[in-house]
Computed example of a mutant assay.
Amino acid sequence: MERQRLDKWLWHARVVKARTHAAALVEAGHVRINGIREKSPGHPLKVDDVLTIGLDRCVRILRVTGFSERRSNAADAKALYDDVSDAAGRS
């Protein structure tokens, strides 16, 4: 798989609890892809895209490292991204 819908990826990576919440988050303008605000939940993601997500009074910065066919446990979900939020905060 080379690409995946933004809302589906957010749900598979366990950033949100439901795919409808992922779509609402994107449509509300709380997600940026490579620094550009995205309002389409169906926008295709590719490996190495960097997502900036405003969520629950904090900002998460995630680099996409892979995709999944379905939602699995939290440990497997962490393999779908690198969390670069901490590295950005220390710079």
Rank of each mutant, 00 (worst) to 15 (best):
V59R: 15
A77E: 10
E27R: 14
S85E: 13
E27F: 00
V15Y: 07
G66I: 04
K17A: 14
M1Q: 06
R63S: 03
T65R: 15
G66R: 02
M1P: 09
R19H: 09
H21P: 02
C58G: 07
A77N: 04
C58A: 13
L45E: 10
G66Y: 01
K39P: 00
F67C: 08
G54L: 14
F67G: 05
V15P: 11
G35T: 11
R90F: 06
E69Y: 00
K46T: 14
G42M: 04
R63M: 10
V26P: 04
A75G: 04
V59Q: 15
A88V: 15
E69L: 09
R71W: 00
A88R: 13
V16R: 13
R90Y: 07
E27V: 06
Q4V: 04
L51W: 01
R57W: 01
R71K: 03
V47Q: 14
S91H: 12
Q4W: 00
T20F: 05
V16N: 12
E38C: 10
F67P: 05
R60C: 03
G54W: 07
A77W: 01
E38F: 00
T52Q: 14
V59M: 11
A74P: 03
R57M: 10
R60Q: 14
F67Y: 02
L55W: 12
P41C: 08
R90D: 11
R5A: 07
N73Q: 08
P41D: 02
L55T: 03
F67K: 02
G54F: 01
A22K: 10
R60V: 09
A74D: 03
R14Q: 13
S72A: 10
F67R: 02
S72Y: 01
Q4I: 07
A79G: 01
A24N: 15
R90S: 15
V47C: 09
D7Y: 04
H21I: 15
S68C: 00
